[in-house]
Design a protein around this nucleic acid. Sequence first.
DNA 1: AAGTCAATCAACCGCCCAGGG
DNA 2: TCCCTGGGCGGTTGATTGACT
Length: 232
Amino acid sequence: MEVENRYKKGLWTEEEDRILLDYVRVHGRGKWNRISKMTGLQRCGKSCRLRWLNYLSPTVKRGGFSEEEEDLIIRLHNLLGNRWSLIAGRVPGRTDNQVKNHWNTHLCKKLGIKNPNKKVVGTSKKTHSALLHRVEDSQFQTLSSTDSLDSKLCHNGDDHDHNKFMEVMESENLFTPGTAVSNNGESQWMMSKQYFAELSPLFQVDYQPILESPGFLEFLDGFPLDLTWQSF
DNA sequence: AAGTCAATCAACCGCCCAGGG
DNA sequence: TCCCTGGGCGGTTGATTGACT
């Protein structure tokens, strides 16, 4: 209780900003919980971190969103759902908080989404794995159309994983026709892999490199705006 | 000018995870 | 193995601001 009352809440003052900036200049980022002890700033570590990341950091871009930024956010949101930090990672200078706020206040209205606060599939822990694989699919979409399905499956060059993957896919009958969701020739594959990902934790991937990989934005350009995660 | 309401967005909350002791 | 701490995330809140009456 005493700890809770020790820290100030609410908007930051210029003086508080100056203290935090000075601290980061001298000690660098991190160890946010030490700031109140070392500087006397009556703010908890979390508050300091957030203030730095969302406002004081020189990499943060202020001002309104451009049309290009909005377009990118919409496409990324279609693909990733409410994964704000990931989306923000692809929008230079913007924080997850900025992107989230802009989505909820402007873009939802623009797109005619009535309940912006409704949780979307892909946000929950349960579907996290599935989301990973949907992003991972993007890598395959950038391959030429002549590539065989087999070579796409063997994406990481690991035959063992590939064999396990094929085993599960076949045993779960995940190649069943009739699950296509768009005219895109690759959509059958996307669906299948999504189902697979729901069922198996076999293929844990770090998707940040995928988001940063060459060709990802090009893939995004070809991703239908109306094809959302929820529609699967 | 004063009051009301809605929009905006900075900040907080609660939860989770990873790493270290 | 357990606990603690730091850091990160998405959802939510609430103070501020501006439009409207």
